[in-house]
């Protein structure tokens, strides 16, 4: 079971647009919600309202600052979940066969009934996409919402991952990256979609679209803080008069 299947023709995955993501964490919340109420063991929290809160999440959003050689720094919000790698290193290390990649669509899943919670698959994943649940003692990871995308009980528009359905900015796209004509493949082609840590040879299915080049602002304004301060000069009319008069005392 833990041998990787031959490459599937269908490669379901996500395309994440780093240009559009606004870092709202809505996908984090919807992912936690869906995957706590549905497939598998719920995603537990420990000490949620205490001094040291901790919990299991399948999708997390980091924020980075990129400073180009020339020009102003830009903020990039960076959602990260399992990339459903073609050469998934998390699968062959599993001693029980619980960690597996589906031959039909390439989704990487954990059979929670067989998982002994050894944690080795999480060690093998370069991206931190797997978390051992503290309460259930089994490995949790993004399921690509396998219980939504094939679910005939849901209205058709809901048959996509919860995070994709939720994203208010449209920064997450779901589709078949094995089909060169699919919308997601075309998007990757048009925007120069990239792999994360390609040097580790995992060949991720999920792709990231880099931020588009920014406008011509080459350096930040000399005194950014001053633009935010209300100044008497900016006030006119009666309020301006009050401000100027009071400032004299």
């Amino acid at each position: 079971m833990t041998a990787l299947p031959p490459p599937s023709a269908v490669k379901l995955g996500l395309v994440i647009d780093l240009d559009t993501c606004v870092g709202c964490h809505a996908c984090v919340v919807s992912c936690k919600g869906w995957n706590t109420e549905n497939y598998g063991a719920p995603l537990s929290d420990t000490d949620a309202y205490g001094a040291d809160p901790s919990g299991t999440f399948l999708n997390r959003v980091h924020s980075y600052e990129v400073t180009p050689d020339l020009g102003a720094p830009v903020t990039v919000h960076f959602p990260k979940s399992c990339l459903h790698c073609e050469d998934a290193p998390c699968v062959p290390v599993c001693p029980t066969g619980a960690s597996y990649k589906r031959a039909e669509d390439g989704i990487v899943l954990v059979n929670e009934d067989a998982c002994i919670g050894c944690g080795l698959c999480a060690w093998a994943c370069p991206y931190g996409a797997r978390e051992l649940d503290a309460m259930a003692g089994v490995m949790k990871k993004c399921t690509l919402c396998v219980d939504r995308i094939y679910n005939d009980n849901l209205p058709e528009e809901d048959r996509e991952p919860a995070c994709v359905r939720t994203c208010p900015a449209g920064a997450r796209h779901f589709g078949d990256l094995g089909d060169p004509d699919s919308d997601v493949s075309q998007l990757v082609l048009a925007r120069g979609g990239m792999d994360l840590m390609p040097e580790l040879g995992t060949r991720p299915v999920n792709k990231y679209l880099p931020p588009r080049p920014r406008d011509t602002l080459q350096e930040p304004p000399a005194n950014l803080a001053a633009l935010c301060e209300p100044t008497p000069q900016a006030l006119t009319g009666f309020l301006g008069w009050v401000d100027r008069t009071l400032s004299r005392f």
């Binding site: 990039v76 994360l196 390609p198």
Partner: peptide, 9 residues
């Protein structure tokens, strides 16, 4: 390389 953003700065 982890974020793919290295090429930008």
């Amino acid at each position: 390389t982890a974020t793919g953003l290295g090429a930008l700065g």
